Simulated scan of single mutants.
Amino acid sequence: MSTASASPDAPAGRSGSADPVARRRRDERRRDRIVLGALVFATLAIALLALYLGSSSVIFSDTPHGTLGGLLEALRGDGPRAMIVREWRLPRVVAGLAFGAALGASGAIFQTLTRNALGSPDVLGFSTGSYTGVLVATVLLGAGGLASSDSALAQAAASLGETGGALLGGIGAAILVYVLAYRDGIQGFRLIIVGIAIAATLSSVNTFLLLRAKEEVAMAASIWGAGSFDLMSWPALLPALAVLVLLTPAVIASVPVIHQLELGDDTAAMHGVRVERARRIVLLIAVALVAVCTAVAGPIAFIALSAPQVGRLLVRRPGIPILPAALVGALLLTSADVASQQLLPQTVPVGMVTVVLGGVYLVALLLAQSARSLRRRV
Rank of each mutant, 00 (worst) to 15 (best):
V85T: 14
V94W: 06
G142Q: 09
A326K: 09
S15P: 07
S7C: 08
M83W: 14
G272K: 11
L39I: 05
V58S: 10
A95P: 03
V123P: 02
G133R: 09
L314A: 09
L90I: 03
I223W: 09
L176W: 03
A102H: 09
F126E: 03
E162P: 08
T114Y: 08
I84V: 15
Y131A: 14
M83A: 15
R280H: 07
T334Y: 11
I322H: 02
L135W: 02
V328E: 11
D265L: 05
G70W: 04
I303D: 01
Q187S: 15
Y182P: 01
T112W: 03
E73D: 15
G165H: 02
A147M: 01
E262R: 09
F41V: 15
A295Q: 00
R31S: 08
G79T: 11
P299T: 10
R30Q: 05
G195Y: 00
L113R: 02
S306L: 01
A291S: 15
A278Q: 14
F189P: 00
R312K: 07
N206I: 04
M270G: 13
M83S: 14
A137V: 06
L283T: 07
I258C: 06
L210M: 02
R375L: 11
L36T: 09
A6S: 05
F189A: 11
G104C: 07
V94F: 09
G298D: 11
L246W: 12
A18R: 15
S106P: 03
L72G: 10
P239D: 01
A200Y: 10
S148W: 00
A117F: 05
L331W: 13
V275S: 07
T43V: 05
T63M: 04
V348K: 12
R115L: 06
L90R: 07
T334H: 09
V363Y: 06
R317Y: 03
G172P: 06
V363L: 12
A221N: 04
I198Q: 01
P345C: 13
V356D: 00
A364F: 07
L49K: 06
L71G: 06
L362F: 10
L238S: 02
V58A: 13
L314F: 05
L176K: 05
T43L: 14
L68P: 03
P91Q: 02
A291H: 09
T128M: 10
A10K: 13
G104D: 05
V287Y: 04
P349E: 12
L357G: 14
V363H: 04
V355T: 14
S306P: 00
Q111Y: 12
V21K: 12
L209R: 07
L357Q: 10
A307Q: 06
T294P: 01
G161F: 05
S106V: 02
A253M: 06
R23G: 10
T112S: 15
S106T: 02
A291T: 07
P256Q: 01
N206D: 13
T294E: 03
P308F: 01
L263Y: 03
G358D: 07
A74C: 08
P121Y: 01
D32A: 13
S106C: 09
S370K: 12
G359T: 00
E262F: 08
L263H: 01
S335G: 14
E262K: 01
T354G: 12
L289G: 10
R29N: 06
L305C: 12
G96M: 10
Y361C: 08
A4R: 15
I192K: 04
T248V: 14
S57R: 14
